[in-house]
């Protein structure tokens, strides 16, 4: 537990030690603002809710979150510090989890800083605060999914750009798993069970269900187990490098 916290703190500190954290947060807030107000027609909708914000968030996450996760392992491999980390008395599981939690916490900070949007709708009308809260919880869970994928992919390379690009593609596949773009590729030659299974991996569907204000345990379990699975794969990748 103590080791986990030490790894977590070092990693989170790593984001704020460079301008990266500040640039990321400013850009994230700027872009979410643009999408919510201009692309999402926040005012014209005349609704006191954050639908316009949550509608575009998955697509912004698709590019912003791999930029957060890309450094987690690739940077350590490139700089040789992975040799230091893995020869300290810290389990691989602890290192993987500590790093992931740091990235997740950082994302949580950026997400929390969108609170003026919530204040705005509260001031303009009388929103259903439960639905908004559900949206934020769903966003955080979905972010965890993207970051776990990105962390695992980061462990496979020394090159942060490769980690970024591959993560975007894999995260995109998970985002749209339920859409015709993906399913039409499988229709006709795969049984319905497989189609349903592929579609059930869709981030957008699970996220959409939560932002509608219904926190279904199944959607929560989906994201949690997805995170667990990718982090397990992450640990396997790091461990495999030892036996190489």
């Amino acid at each position: 537990m103590r080791d986990l916290f030490a790894v977590f703190r070092r990693e989170l500190g790593g984001y704020f030690a460079t301008p990266l954290a500040y640039v990321f947060i400013v850009m994230f807030l700027f872009v979410t603002g643009i999408f919510t107000f201009f692309v999402g027609n926040f005012f014209a909708r005349g609704q006191a809710d954050l639908k316009a914000f949550f509608l575009y968030l998955p697509w912004l996450y698709l590019f912003f979150l791999p930029a957060i996760s890309m450094r987690l392992w690739a940077e350590e491999r490139k700089g040789g510090t992975i040799e230091l980390l893995l020869t300290l008395p810290v389990g691989i599981g602890t290192a993987v989890l500590g790093k992931f939690l740091a990235a997740w916490a950082f994302t949580g900070i950026a997400l929390a800083l969108t609170f003026p949007l919530w204040l705005t709708i509260g001031w303009l009308g009388s929103p259903d605060h439960g639905v908004v809260l559900a949206g934020y919880i769903g966003s955080l869970l979905m972010a965890g999914g993207y970051l776990a994928i990105g962390s695992c992919i980061s462990a496979m390379t020394k090159n942060q750009v490769i980690a970024f690009v591959v993560s975007v593609v894999v995260c995109f596949a998970f985002s749209v798993a339920g859409s015709p773009m993906v399913t039409s590729f499988f229709v006709g030659w795969t049984p319905q069970v497989v189609l349903d299974a592929i579609a059930s991996f869709s981030f957008l569907q699970h996220f959409g269900a939560i932002t509608d204000g219904v926190i279904d345990l199944r959607d929560v379990i989906f994201f949690i187990s997805l995170i667990a699975l990718w982090l397990f794969a992450n640990a396997v990748v790091v461990d495999a490098n030892k036996a190489g």
Binding site: A17, T18, G80, T87
Partner: peptide
């Protein structure tokens, strides 16, 4: 252990 090249976290 002092690994070859003495790697350390550069930002710290």
């Amino acid at each position: 252990y002092l690994p070859e090249g003495a790697p350390a976290y550069p930002d710290m």
